[in-house]
């Protein structure tokens, strides 16, 4: 086997192992570390396959932003230790999920290039964007993303904006301990007539304030 094939198997096995450890590890911080490791392995796989822009984007966005956010939350919150897992109960459900997933993709793969019986056209609903050899991956994606998919690009920016507003609104608290503010000029301009009043109190008669 060639070296790149061995490298593919190594990265895939490390990715699967680290994702298993994300789920089944005892502490949350270890889960976050294994999540970062999984993302780095997936990025290496993307690099091997020729999608280098997306590989770097995975490192920058997933590892550099989202996993760091998870680490912030782990540091801030007090999380108790997790208990043991009952795997045997969930094996039929999990196998059903994976079988359905693989079967769906296999059905799509085997039927996707057959021509339609009635109209005779093949199922090419979308335009084919050729991967060019002479320019880099980032430039090729940029040629498509900012011209043909400009609306989707702007909408994704809008989605991020809405997510930011939502996160701020969810965690924004009105401050209920107001700081005592001193009004210095009011203190300085206090007059004796406003602050003190001398009242002669008759004995055995109270004072009506």
């Amino acid at each position: 086997m060639l070296f790149s094939t061995i490298l593919f198997y190594q990265f895939s096995i490390l990715l699967i192992l680290s994702s298993i450890f994300v789920v089944f590890s005892k502490s949350t911080i270890t889960s976050a570390m294994f999540l970062i490791f999984a993302f780095v392995n997936a990025s290496a796989l993307f690099l091997m396959i020729g999608a280098e822009f997306l590989a770097m984007l995975l490192i920058i966005v997933y590892v550099g932003a989202i996993a760091i956010l998870f680490l912030f939350v782990v540091m801030m919150l007090d999380v108790e230790a997790k208990k043991e897992y009952n795997l045997k109960k969930y094996v039929p459900v999990l196998s059903l999920v994976s079988v359905v997933f693989v079967t769906q993709i296999y059905i799509i793969l085997s039927n996707s290039l057959k021509p339609d019986e009635i109209t005779g056209k093949a199922y090419f609903f979308l335009k084919h964007h050729r991967m060019p050899d002479d320019i880099s991956n980032a430039k090729a994606i940029g040629n498509i993303l900012y011209t043909e998919f400009f609306l989707q690009f702007q909408l994704s920016g809008l989605i991020l904006f809405v997510a930011m507003i939502g996160a701020i609104i969810l965690t924004l608290k009105e401050s209920d301990n107001f700081k005592k503010v001193q009004n210095i000029s009011k203190q300085v301009f206090r007059r004796k007539e406003d602050s003190i009043e001398i009242i002669k109190v008759k004995s055995n008669k109270g004072l009506d304030v």
């Binding site: 995975l58 989202i66 998870f70 964007h129 498509i144 989605i159 991020l160 997510a163 939502g166 969810l170």
Partner: peptide, 22 residues
């Protein structure tokens, strides 16, 4: 050999980030 998958993967990355934040 179609670049549309990678472009859509970028959008999926955006949605994943927004969803993780919320």
């Amino acid at each position: 050999q179609d670049l549309l998958g990678q472009v859509f993967a970028i959008f999926i990355l955006v949605i994943a980030g927004a969803e993780a934040a919320i």
